[in-house]
């Protein structure tokens, strides 16, 4: 199951400019319906976040972002992402190398297992770590004896975030590397490069755009995860609150402006994610078109 949708190669071309189509009335009714639906569900909430965030002036906005609890929430979010994203990136590259470049039995089962965290509720992602490391969990008594805190502390937050963002990079890279095939790597080996040279000079440049998008998406989700983190965090202000949890605390305290100010940072991050995705798609389809043109001119 895809929690993300892989980059589309050569998508968005409109081949249907001629031929049978609908009347102008039907066409514009459908366009209005689509835009109206998206306006209510996407544009309006987004505009609201920024309107409320800046509703009481820029000064209040920055005051909300620089108060100690907000700063410690931002710091914890950055720490969490700084651990979870690189680990899941290394995993994603390794897993897609093994899956896309080799044929072995049980490959489909492995792909399904990698997708598993997408299919599972974030609350269950938090629950499983409480059952392992919580006071009454499997390792709880041992952890208490040795004075190690995982639940209601940073390690639990990092673990839950890693679980939730586990598939992102792998999901982007597997279809991309499968589509590219093995030929270029085999040529590199034939020309005498060793495994690492082949990876750094051939494979990595080929997958860089997909990898970039996977990492950005993984990062956005790691910084924005709410459900899983809320189960393991314990909501200790200034200590175990991440940015999304800080938003909740402010909102429940009726400090709406401050809440939307912190929310606007995450909304801004979502914007950047979407822009990077558009750029990556544009780059990939351009490279795809160049490759097609090259092979066409070779044939003629």
């Amino acid at each position: 199951m895809a929690g993300t949708v892989a980059i589309r190669v050569g998508g968005g071309r409109n081949r249907h400019t001629s031929g049978k189509t609908e009347s102008a009335f039907v066409r514009w009714t459908l366009i209005s319906l689509a835009l109206g639906f998206l306006a209510f569900f996407l544009f309006l909430p987004l505009i609201l976040v920024f309107t409320y965030a800046f509703g009481q002036g820029v000064k209040t906005y920055f005051a909300a972002l620089t108060e100690p609890d907000a700063l410690s929430a931002i710091r914890l979010t950055l720490i969490t992402a700084a651990i979870a994203v690189p680990l899941n990136t290394v995993f994603g590259v390794a897993a897609s190398w093994a899956i896309a470049k080799f044929e072995f039995k049980g490959k489909n089962i492995l792909i399904t297992l990698i997708d598993l965290p997408f299919a599972i509720s974030p609350i269950i992602a938090g629950l499983i770590f409480v059952l392992l490391f919580g006071a009454r969990g499997w390792f709880g008594p041992w952890l208490v004896e040795n004075d190690i805190r995982i639940i209601f502390a940073t390690p639990g937050i990092v673990l839950a975030t890693m679980f939730v963002t586990f598939p992102f990079v792998a999901r982007e890279l597997i279809p991309l590397m499968q589509a590219q095939g093995n030929e270029e790597e085999l040529s590199a080996l034939t020309l005498g490069s060793n495994g690492w040279q082949m990876f750094w000079r051939v494979t990595l440049p080929n997958i860089k755009w997909g990898l970039l998008y996977g990492v950005i998406l993984c990062n956005a989700r790691a910084m924005g995860e709410f459900g899983a983190v809320s189960v393991v965090s314990g909501h200790i202000r200034g200590l175990t609150n991440t940015m999304p949890l800080h938003i909740e605390v402010l909102y429940n305290d009726y400090r709406f402006t401050a809440s939307f100010a912190v929310a606007s940072l995450l909304a801004f991050l979502a914007f950047i994610t979407l822009i990077v995705k558009s750029l990556v798609e544009w780059n990939v389809s351009r490279e795809h078109m160049l490759a097609v043109r090259e092979s066409e001119s070779e044939q003629s």
Binding site: L217, A263, L266
Partner: peptide, 11 residues
């Protein structure tokens, strides 16, 4: 996909 659920929730 990109917007945290807490943000869409309060919005």
């Amino acid at each position: 996909f990109a917007l945290p659920t807490a943000v869409s929730g309060i919005a």
